[in-house]
Amino acid sequence: MSNLLEFARELAAIGQAGITYSKDPYDRERFVRLREMAGELLALPDYSPDFKWPDEIGYDTPKVDVRAVVFRGSEILLIKEAATGLWTLPGGWADVNISPAENAEKECREESGYIVKATRIVSVIDKERAGYAPNANAIYKIFFLCDLIGGEPTTSHESLGVGFFDIDALPPLDPHRGREVDIRDAYARHLDPTLQPVFN
């Protein structure tokens, strides 16, 4: 393991799988304790003393974050996150019972007021390996190129603002949700459909 977070994350995943699949009550107790210990590693004073694993059940898999990438000429649709006051691509955690593309369309409509149609995947990345800040969860990010169908700019409880910005004049971006490099990767594929999706 290259760092403490990766080590603790794998221990927690082993513990959670054991809790889910073990039939022996004594083994289940051991797996519960293993997951607790993985959290205690990250709660050490020199790491993150207030750390706690999110409550999860079942086999531990990466969480999925979907983003709608909508261009209007050289401008890109961004929303101002209520949580941070910074700008990002519309999107968020994928919900169950709808496809990844439908999730991106739904998130865009809810956060921006615009109706879009996902047409192409421009990137699928492991968030941490792509250079984002570490997170307790392993996270995959999927960026969908979307066509603008209709609607009008509308804020929500998740967004303080909605706007189109020239890619050479972007507002302050939320570095945990989407970066300029992600936008430029998408713009290159918007201009040239023959380019393959980005992945790691």
Rank of each mutant, 00 (worst) to 15 (best):
R67D: 12
K63E: 12
Y47I: 12
D50S: 12
I121N: 05
D50M: 04
R28I: 14
R28S: 02
I115L: 13
K63V: 10
G113L: 03
P54D: 11
G39D: 02
G113K: 04
R120T: 04
A38F: 02
E56Y: 06
N97G: 02
W53R: 02
P54N: 03
V96Q: 13
L34H: 03
R28E: 12
T20P: 00
P62H: 08
P62A: 07
G91I: 04
E107T: 00
A118H: 08
G18H: 05
K106V: 01
L89S: 09
R67G: 13
T84K: 11
I125G: 09
M1C: 06
E40I: 01
E36H: 02
L77K: 09
Y59P: 03
Y26P: 00
V124C: 11
R28Y: 04
L42W: 02
I57A: 12
D50V: 05
E6D: 12
T88S: 14
C108A: 13
V70L: 07
Y26I: 07
A12S: 11
F71A: 04
Y26E: 14
T84P: 05
K106Q: 11
N3T: 08
R72C: 04
G18F: 05
R30K: 13
A13H: 00
S22V: 03
L42G: 04
W93C: 03
I76E: 08
L34K: 01
D65H: 14
G113R: 00
I125F: 10
E36G: 01
D95N: 12
G91Q: 08
R109V: 03
F51I: 01
K117E: 14
E105V: 04
G113W: 04
A83N: 07
A83M: 08
A13I: 00
V116D: 07
V70G: 08
L34E: 06
L41E: 02
L89P: 07
R30F: 10
A94K: 12
G92K: 12
A12V: 01
G39H: 02
L44K: 07
I115V: 15
V64W: 10
V66E: 09
A104M: 04
V70F: 11
V64N: 11
T88Y: 00
G58H: 10
E102W: 01
N3D: 15
F51V: 02
S123P: 02
L42R: 01
D27F: 11
D65S: 14
K23G: 10
G18M: 08
W87D: 04
V116F: 03
A104C: 08
D24S: 15
L41P: 01
M37K: 08
I76P: 07
S123G: 15
E56H: 08
V96H: 05
N97V: 09
L89W: 09
S22Y: 03
K117Q: 14
I121V: 15
I19E: 15
E75Q: 14
V69Q: 10
R9E: 06
A118R: 13
A101R: 14
P100C: 13
P90K: 06
M37E: 06
K52L: 10
V116R: 07
E29M: 09
G58K: 06
C108Q: 04
W53K: 05
